[in-house]
Design a protein around this nucleic acid. Structure first.
Lengths: 147, 147
DNA sequence: CTCGAACCTCAACCGAACTTCACCTCAAGG
DNA sequence: CCTTGAGGTGAAGTTCGGTTGAGGTTCGAG
């Protein structure tokens, strides 16, 4: 036990992420694995941290593509230090704050509109595209021009 | 000008929602339109408010399916009053608060982890499935069991 | 050595929220 | 009358974040 590397099943159990998702992440270049003679994946324990970072980032609302970019910015060659991870986390911090701010504004506006019952597209700050949370989900969705 | 009804183009312009999306919403039963002799859609002005409600709800993170259910709960037969809309908005209020709360928690935890650089799956409250924002976006995503 | 569990790949599928396309009709202006 | 543009339909395509399935291989306990 406590081997140097993890099988995909072990990584799945420890991270709470399905094996199929881990393979998918690998295809996208988010995580990496060595291979045994028999072509099975063996993960370094540091991959656990990458997976954790991925899932946390998703909760913040970052796309896998952006997460990949972020992970790519980690120093190549050496194992990332806690400071490296902290730097990445800090990068999301602003996004998170912005999301919270926008949702807060949405709530306030909604309160206002509950008061007046308006829901008027024109007057109500609720319906202000320039300020939208657009790009929230995936899909061919972008309709409100995203400045 | 200022006719009693709107064409799909007019509704699209006023709401900022593409005609194709409006037709899609109609198929899903979120909005309704009368038809002219030549089979063209004519929207009552109250549909503007429905569309506004739809877009606002989406920003809060509600699916079209749930939005439809909410809209179905509006009193049939009469034009919804401001109070009717206020009731619907209130229903989303809790969701919004919960989302804000969870994101706030995520931020605090992230700050903690920036301090310690841990990102450890086991210890870190960040990686607590029971408390996840799961179901954030669409897609076959639910992996962390959603209690 | 054998056997079942775990792993492999590749391709196809899912669901959400739309868009795009091909092809057709309708309404108004010149 | 002709054209132009807005509108209509249905089917198919797109993106994201995966899952599922078929068919085959490997690992490790007994």
């Amino acid at each position: 036990m406590h081997e140097a590397t993890l099988t995909i099943g072990q990584l799945a159990d420890r991270s709470g992420v399905a094996p199929s998702a881990l393979r998918y992440y690998e295809r996208l270049g988010l995580i990496h694995a060595a291979r045994t003679g028999g072509n099975q994946r063996r993960y370094a324990r540091t991959e656990l941290r990458r997976v954790a970072f991925i899932r946390i980032s998703q909760q913040i609302g970052v796309s896998l593509d952006e997460i990949r970019e972020a992970l790519d910015s980690l120093p190549a060659g050496r194992t990332p230090t806690p400071e490296d991870w902290a730097a990445l986390s800090l990068a999301w911090r602003d996004r998170l704050d912005e999301r919270i701010r926008l949702l807060g504004k949405l709530r306030d506006d909604l309160d206002g509109c509950i008061g007046c019952g308006c829901l008027s597209l024109q007057r109500c700050t609720l319906y202000n595209p320039g300020d939208s949370l657009a790009g929230e989900g995936p899909g061919a969705r972008l309709m409100l021009p995203r400045d």
